[in-house]
Design a protein around this nucleic acid. Structure first.
Lengths: 228, 228
DNA sequence: AACGAAAAATTGGTCATACCATCTGTCCGC
DNA sequence: GCGGACAGATGGTATGACCAATTTTTCGTT
């Protein structure tokens, strides 16, 4: 069957976005570097300033740039013409704590398995240090929100998949607001404490399945505590 | 320790985005409905048209709206003040494809286990029908992209967690573009075919661990095929 | 009355220009 | 040498106008 290509009209704003991506690449701009001033960019690209600004607003929405009034516009991520952006829309009102936890469980159990399978030895050793801190902070204060977060985030780094990190970060933030507001402090910290070291041991032993199971047990405790 | 709140300056454009979200909610606008004209919105919100347009460009970048010259601007998704947008940057290279697959594996293996644990019997029976279609389409055409997608998406419905659906949808879209462009058609459809029925059987047997393992085997085949 | 083509109105896309608020670096006076 | 005022640069906002695509209305023809 002969297919007919859909007409792709390109608005000037879109063209400017692409030109900007090309410019950033060719100029070898790095993260936190400053872009030329809006007026200059508009002239260089041969478009009016409103159009240039609309393109910038689009990049801003995608988290690529950050304008600072009075100073300039700065790069927040890398950018090149062959980058694409994946947008997940989440209704935070409807999504309950349980659903967020289930998502985290899915990501974290897999991340733990991936870490066990391929993280470099030195990185795993660092994780061991985090376990020490975790236990230490708990001994001193009876809780360990700081080092707990550091430990779990380290897992995602060990998994060596940036997407996991990108997805879990906002999920984690959302969970933190839950712990603060509707729910008070929970006490699963104590019960899950030993599992952290156990998880570290499973990863160190290069045991993906074992690591996955430990993570599941952690979440069972949390969910159990939540129902209580 | 006393913490000091970071100053949050809000630009007018950002305020307009929020106002728009509120408006869409209060006006009960549905997907594919038309928004008021730019000029009208600008007047109603008390801002200039450029600012209003910058806000629209932002929503456009997030895939929320779609402007059609001459006709108006239309809603592409639901929108309310509760919605948050999570953006992950993907570059069109083989490495990203693998990362996307790993993310999908994490979600899908857990979703399968959740489905086995709690999906209602009738819903699982429907999944069985999808397996029939899957095998039928493959017998007829030698491939089954349509029914394959239907089957996998059904898994996420059975998992009864909207977040999983929200996350996997754009991931799936992104994967589809990969199959089309950098890579050609792959032939893992044939090799993973029997696993679909097996997965259905594991879910029907209420065997979460078994379901999880079948999903993992599916992805092993896909990744193997990819390396070839 | 029904149909179809031309004209008018509507709507998003683009442009030019001006002014304001904020930040930064410089230069002057102490 | 130091502190503060000043000027320049930069992003944020507003006005008003015109263009191009689309939709709706109008009106003449059949």
């Amino acid at each position: 069957m002969a297919t007919i290509a859909k007409v792709v009209t390109q608005t000037k704003t879109e063209a400017v976005v692409e030109s900007l991506a090309r410019f950033v690449t060719e100029a070898k701009l790095q993260v936190s570097d400053r872009l030329p001033a809006e007026r200059d960019l508009a002239i260089a690209l041969g478009v009016s300033r409103p159009v240039l600004r609309e393109a910038l607003k689009r990049l801003e929405a995608l988290g690529v740039i950050e304008p600072r009034p009075g100073s300039g516009t700065f790069l927040r991520t890398t950018l090149s013409p062959n980058h694409t952006h994946l947008v997940v829309q989440v209704d935070l009102e409807r999504e309950s704590l349980i659903q967020l936890l289930e998502l985290r469980r899915a990501l974290e159990s897999e991340a733990a398995a991936m870490a066990a399978a391929r993280a470099p030895d030195e990185a795993i050793a660092n994780l061991g240090g985090l376990v020490d801190q975790l236990e230490d902070e708990f001994r001193r204060t009876g809780d360990n929100p700081e080092s707990d977060k550091a430990f779990h985030m380290a897992l995602y780094v060990l998994a060596e998949n940036r997407l996991f990190w990108d997805v879990i970060t906002p999920v984690w933030e959302q969970l933190e607001t839950f712990w603060q507001y509707p729910l008070g402090k929970r006490d699963f910290a104590k019960r899950t404490l030993p599992l952290h070291r156990e998880l570290y041991e499973r990863i160190r032993a290069r045991d993906p399945e074992g690591a996955r199971k430990v993570v599941h047990r952690m979440f069972e405790i949390v969910e159990e505590d939540l129902r209580a």
